[in-house]
């Protein structure tokens, strides 16, 4: 009889003997993986969305008066003195009026009685892609506000700040659910293996007496943890995938969710989560063996 044949038979016997607690552990591992992967999926999608928003980010500097060409050059050099930028566009009062009118579309009649120079001139500054953190954008905005002739700088501060704090909160939730995943998988697997060891105390004692090697006795328990990891995490990821598809199917019409382009994990990320879960479960069973299975 080969070593692995015997070991797998022992694993099957263990699973049969403690199937109740095994199922509980499996569900706990699956749920932990599902919770972690769920938040991680939202987090990665938010980061992706943040990147996309960053690409469209521009700062609008409102000016008191339309700058003459010479002053435009001075302003350009002052703006570039802070950092390189991708683009600087000067918008005159007339251009601003035209833009506003075209945005109003059919309702542009409302502008009939209003003078065409009522909108302030402005500069649209598109920062470089490396200037994406909230603090840097804030610093740049403050710098632009100090330029002579500037009345106001806008870049959708409130929205950007809210988005930034939301992703920060998500990163904390991801960290917490990751910790939950680590604790539950290690403790639950360790607890189940401990139950199995206690339930098979007489047999393990006998196995030692008839000459079973350490590997013969310990490997089935390690494999048990490994199986819990493989099954539990695969079940968790599969459930998330089903949930993801369901949400996509039912909320794909026009609405808030349509603003985002949600995408599932790459196979590599999924496999990494499964791999880490397997490692944690095996660690749980190993720690119990070290404690309760001294041979």
């Amino acid at each position: 009889m080969s070593f692995w044949f015997t070991v797998i038979r022992q694993v099957g016997r263990n699973l049969r003997m403690t199937w109740g607690s095994q199922i509980m552990t499996l569900l706990t591992v699956s749920l932990s993986v599902l919770i972690f992967a769920f938040f991680y999926l939202i987090y990665t999608n938010m980061l992706h969305f943040g990147d996309k928003l960053g690409n469209d980010l521009s700062l609008i500097v409102y000016l008191e008066e339309e700058p003459v060409p010479e002053m435009q050059q001075q302003l350009i050099s002052k703006i570039k003195a802070f950092d390189d930028v991708e683009e600087i566009r000067f918008i005159s009062r007339a251009q601003a009026y035209q833009r506003f009118a075209s945005q109003l579309g059919k309702n542009q009649d409302v502008l009939n009685d209003i003078p065409k120079d009522f909108l302030p001139p402005s500069i649209e500054v598109v920062p470089m892609k490396n200037l994406r953190s909230l603090n840097q954008v804030k610093l740049f905005s403050a710098y632009l506000a100090r330029l002579p002739g500037t009345t106001k700088v806008q870049y959708g501060q409130d929205w950007v700040e809210r988005f930034y704090y939301f992703t920060k909160l998500l990163s904390i939730i991801v960290l917490l659910s990751g910790t939950l995943l680590i604790l539950t998988t290690i403790f639950m697997v360790a607890y189940t293996i401990r139950l199995t060891i206690l339930g098979r105390q007489a047999e393990l004692e006998l196995l030692k007496l008839v000459g079973a090697t350490n590997n013969y006795i310990r490997t089935p328990f390690l494999l048990e943890g490994l199986f819990q990891g493989i099954l539990g995490s695969s079940l968790g990821i599969a459930s998330l995938f089903v949930l993801f598809q369901w949400i996509k199917l039912h909320f794909s019409g026009p609405g808030f969710l349509n603003l985002f382009e949600f995408s599932f994990f790459s196979p590599m990320v999924g496999l990494t989560i499964i791999g880490v879960s397997i490692l944690l479960c095996t660690l749980g069973s190993y720690s119990t063996m070290q404690k309760f299975l001294r041979i």
Binding site: E203, E205, L206, K208, L209, V210, G211, A212, T213, N214
Partner: peptide, 22 residues
């Protein structure tokens, strides 16, 4: 200890007074 002890025990058959049956 360890595998040497296990190999020795495989060569020894013991019928215990309390049987030690499962």
């Amino acid at each position: 200890k360890g595998s040497k002890l296990a190999r020795l025990r495989q060569k020894i058959g013991v019928a215990y007074q309390d049987f030690k049956l499962l």
